Simulated scan of single mutants.
Amino acid sequence: MARAHKKHTVAEILKRIIFITLGAALMGVALEYFLVPNSMLDGGITGISIVLSSITPLPLSVLIFVINLPFLFIGYKQIGRTFALSTLYGIAVMSLTTAILHHVEPFTHEKILAVLYGGVLLGAGVGLAIRYGGALDGTEIVAILISKKTRIPVGQIIMLINVVIFTIAGFLFGPDSAMYSIFTFYIAAKVMDIVVEGLDESKSVTIISSEYEEISQAIMDRLGRPTTYFYAKGGYSNMDTQVIYCVVTRLELAKLKAMVQEIDPSAFISIQHVSDVLGGSMEKKSIH
């Protein structure tokens, strides 16, 4: 049993590495092949890095990596080691890709084509990274922390940050480039939506398992999320059991699924979209 569990874990790690690598490389291609040569920006830390690379001698690849580091440290403290390491790896691959492609001739100088191709590749890359337990930008970590303090939805905070970035782009690169950047960001967000299969800020998770006590304790200890038991009775087995219910952020979802399957590979997991969360005990507890 222990040997099979170890193989499963290695397979999951390899799968995560492969898809985060692919996602990070796609984002690097989108930036250097389509967006940056046409004076277009992405949102978040990447957008800030593009702005700084245009007004300083520092290369984009270095800025992306260095500016994201403090947010990765915050992510390590707030969300966990696996997420932080996955994100660090993804950002490193993306930075390396932009460095390699920086002097390569861009695919096109046609603005509309750059918006379409760049937006699709960007959204696919970020979506793959998020789906497999990482991220490619520190903005979401900042947004999650601000949301905890202010109760403003994470999506609104990210949008506000990006409005500021695109406004700056309008002054530096002209209003046309700013508008093209907004269109690119919109397309990327829609593609990301498809790849991740829904980017609601929170997910409610229902878990049915005979190991409910161990799973519940792991969720509280390793994710810092409170859990609730529902008493239930199996329709087929006719046995009494308890169902676990909890609410997590989408960045924590991949870690939660891996954690549950690690404890009980046969556990039943049901995930629902949550449009909003108010009150209750959604606030994370500190993890020691």
Rank of each mutant, 00 (worst) to 15 (best):
A11E: 11
A11I: 13
E12P: 03
E12H: 06
L14P: 05
K15Y: 01
F19Y: 07
F19N: 07
F19M: 09
I20E: 11
T21H: 08
L22S: 09
G23Y: 02
G23P: 01
A25L: 08
L26H: 08
L26E: 09
L26G: 13
M27D: 07
G28N: 08
V29Y: 05
V29G: 10
A30I: 15
E32Q: 12
E32M: 11
F34C: 14
L35A: 12
V36C: 06
P37V: 05
S39T: 07
M40Y: 04
D42I: 00
D42R: 08
D42E: 14
G43T: 10
G43A: 07
G44L: 06
I50L: 04
V51M: 15
V51H: 09
S53E: 11
S53I: 11
S54W: 08
T56M: 05
P57F: 10
P57D: 14
P57M: 12
P57H: 11
L60Q: 06
L60A: 10
S61D: 06
S61K: 00
S61M: 07
I64R: 01
F65V: 02
P70C: 04
P70A: 02
L72C: 00
F73C: 12
Y76R: 06
Y76M: 11
Y76G: 09
I79V: 07
G80A: 05
A84F: 03
S86C: 03
L88G: 05
Y89L: 14
I91P: 00
I91L: 02
A92E: 00
A92K: 00
M94H: 10
S95F: 02
S95V: 01
S95C: 07
T97G: 07
T98C: 03
T98G: 02
A99D: 14
A99S: 15
H103S: 13
H103V: 00
V104R: 04
V104G: 08
E105W: 10
P106E: 15
P106N: 15
F107E: 10
E110H: 13
E110T: 15
K111Q: 10
K111S: 12
L113N: 08
A114D: 09
V115N: 02
Y117M: 10
G118E: 01
G118L: 05
G118W: 01
V120W: 03
L121A: 03
L121Y: 02
L121E: 01
A124H: 07
A124E: 08
